[in-house]
């Protein structure tokens, strides 16, 4: 990140604007441009947000794991900040997935919650990274906590394929009581594909913007702390 610091002002001016316009375009696509889904009706429109939030959440967790691995390897505080920011933003989107999922499932499947493999996997990931945040806040004064958290972030991502496979197998032998939904990803109309792609761009921009905001926030917090410590020393 530090290498790009020089171009930061321009990026920071463009990103919020781009994200805002992309999000407005996404809203128009989702609610006006895209047609109603034949089987599910209006409620299907939540799918555009649901799916893209899931991708953004995954992206956050993978960025966090990558930054954490770099931090363990090189020990640079920038990578640690990036990991924290990515987990926080990932958790935001992951929570969004878990909220929009039931809203959609209730009218379609007749139940708020089902142990659909993807939903199950999302809730497990949510708990892993919730623990990451608990760990960080539980021992903020422990100088080792950054390294502990980094190990958790890396192990968490290593666990993802295992969770995915085992959850699939598990649901395979416990057939769902509720009848399988009409093809979840089936986009019958090309306008739906457009809506999905526009929303994806909007979410990606939002993701990057939030990530930068959090990263800068953490950097400023550390800088402020250093200043306070220096002031304290001078006062002594």
């Amino acid at each position: 990140m530090s290498a790009r610091a020089s171009s930061a002002p321009l990026v920071d001016r463009v990103l919020p604007i781009a994200a805002t316009f992309a999000m407005l375009a996404a809203l128009w696509c989702v609610f006006v441009y895209a047609p109603n889904e034949r089987m599910q009706g209006a409620v299907q429109r939540i799918f555009y947000f649901h799916v893209n939030a899931a991708w953004a959440a995954f992206l956050g967790f993978f960025v966090a794991a990558g930054a954490s691995a770099l931090f363990l390897w090189r020990g640079r505080v920038e990578h640690d900040r990036m990991a924290v920011a990515a987990v926080e933003v990932g958790m935001l989107f992951c929570t969004m997935v878990l909220v929009t999922g039931p809203i959609w499932a209730r009218p379609i499947w007749g139940a708020w919650w089902t142990w659909d493999p993807r939903l199950t996997m999302t809730v497990i990931l949510w708990t892993i990274y919730a623990v990451y945040l608990v760990l960080r806040s539980s021992a903020r004064e422990d100088p080792q906590i950054a390294r502990y958290a980094a190990v958790l972030a890396v192990i968490g991502v290593l666990d993802v394929p295992l969770i995915q496979v085992s959850v699939r197998l598990w649901r395979g032998i416990h057939p769902s009581v509720i009848s399988a939904p009409a093809n979840k990803g089936g986009l019958e109309d090309p306008r739906m594909v457009v809506a999905l792609l526009v929303t994806m761009v909007a979410f990606l921009l939002l993701f990057v913007w939030l990530l930068r905001l959090r990263y800068d926030g953490l950097r400023l917090r550390d800088a402020l702390q250093r200043l306070e410590d220096r002031l304290g020393e001078v006062a002594r």
Partner: peptide, 8 residues
Amino acid sequence: KAFGRAVV
């Protein structure tokens, strides 16, 4: 050597 914010 510092432990968190405490410089030793």
